[in-house]
Computed example of a mutant assay.
Amino acid sequence: MYFLKSLARRTPQGAPLIFSIGLFSKEEDKAGSNFDIVDREKELQEIKLKYEQRSDISWTERLSLMWRIDEYGALSPELNQCIFSTYISAVCGGIVGSYVETQRIMKVFLERNKYEMFKHPREAQAAVRDKWILTAYKGFFRYGSRMAILTGTYMCVSQSLTAIRNYVNPLDHAVGGMMMGAVYRFNMGPKGMLAAGVLGGIIGLQAGCIWWVIQWATGETVEERWRREYFQYRLNVELKEATQKLEDERQKLIEEGGQAKSEPYVEEEDSLDFVHGYILLARKWLVDAGILSSPITLKEDNGAIVTNPKL
């Protein structure tokens, strides 16, 4: 306690602002800033070559391939498997926790209020509803966070050891299980951590054997699977970039030198020319017949004015 108080007194005044900036900054901006380099294609080619020749590189390079983030903020195939397993376990644990806690609180509520709940049924229903919702949220967070921590610890440790070895070994999963058990009983001290670590190592060893059998049945090695997943991800990224480039009209304007192509103007033909011709012919016939007078006046050579000339 004294150490925490002294640490709080020594903390500079600008520390809260710095920590707040770090908390509210976007991960995409961080990932993008690391890849704002000219030789981006060179970096991608090096990563591709490492996945193609994974067995020829060192264990540190294989581990760095796992713990990395690309230019779009996406994780590697190895680390993505850990995150996906953690999410699934958190959701499943949260659902189980909500069910267990709500069933327990319902039994307690019925035992405490079984003689008074029928006197005011509406108030009893409202009270149990609020209690049920609050308990469901608490159970989901409690069990879900616990399962996420345990599964994340197990998957990260075992997956890192698998990346170092470049093949599945049940002992790696046993080590991951030991770490999981030690984290689970961290509040019980060294003895509790040791006992839980031994039990977790036994469970992890069994899980590692099952995982090894599944990989043997599929006939695909660790290197082949992660290479396939990486190439599939890069193919999806390239297709997305190509689609976005086609849909971006500004890119077309840049490629054309900043000038849009102007379509040639085609004058439309007047569709009423034939009607106008028939009207002129009819008017000429009426003027010749003397029914209409011509508005045109012509002057002869002798000075006489003809108001109805023969057209």
Rank of each mutant, 00 (worst) to 15 (best):
G152Y: 00
R185C: 03
I202R: 00
E220M: 07
F231R: 14
G181K: 04
R227W: 02
G197Q: 02
A136R: 04
R250Y: 08
L171I: 14
G139P: 06
G192Y: 06
F141E: 12
R225Q: 13
F231P: 11
D248E: 02
R185F: 08
H173Q: 14
M155H: 11
E223G: 03
C209Q: 08
V183K: 00
N236H: 08
I214K: 09
R142Y: 11
L161R: 01
A217P: 02
S145T: 15
T243P: 02
G152L: 04
A182W: 00
M180F: 06
V157K: 00
L171C: 09
M188V: 05
T135R: 14
W226R: 12
R165D: 08
D248R: 00
R165L: 03
G177W: 07
W211R: 11
E224R: 08
N169P: 08
D172M: 01
A242W: 13
C209L: 09
L199Y: 11
I214G: 07
E229G: 14
L171G: 07
N187T: 10
N187R: 12
F141R: 12
Y154P: 01
K240L: 14
Q232S: 13
G208K: 00
I214L: 10
Q251K: 08
H173M: 13
I214S: 11
M179G: 06
L134V: 05
L194E: 07
I214C: 08
L199V: 13
G219P: 03
D172F: 06
A207Q: 15
G189H: 02
Q215S: 05
L199N: 12
N187M: 05
W211D: 14
E238I: 13
Y137T: 10
V168M: 07
W211H: 13
D172R: 01
G204D: 04
N166T: 00
M155P: 07
W132A: 04
G177I: 02
A174Y: 02
A195W: 05
R250I: 11
I214A: 12
K240P: 09
E224H: 03
Q232V: 15
R165Y: 06
